[in-house]
Amino acid sequence: MFAKLTMLILGLGLLAALLLVNRQRRYEIVGETVRLHAEIQQLQRAIQERKVRVTEATKPAELEAMKNGLSEQWKSIGDRTQLFDQLEGLEVEKTTFVDPGMELGG
């Protein structure tokens, strides 16, 4: 009889322990859920901040200033004043190109 009672108590104790383990795991899952929720919120906030920064950085005045600050090599051809200055100074060189039509007497 004593053995049966002991088994019963141990069984119940085990059940209670399992329930407490289950509870602990639930706490951990809930805690993780809340942490992830906060992280998602933080990320969404960060995304919105980036959007605002992109808007600020792509204002026409900003783009114009950026364009003016570019070094010569990054400018579009139309804006390369130095390039045209250089081209104007170049002399026409003799070419070694032979027109095939001329060689054939055409």
Partner: peptide
């Protein structure tokens, strides 16, 4: 002893239930 065991078991169960 049986009654005490049942009482302890019920108490343990209740505690677990309240916690869970």
């Amino acid at each position: 002893v049986g009654l005490i065991a049942i009482g302890i078991a019920a108490t343990l169960f209740k505690v677990a239930w309240l916690k869970v």
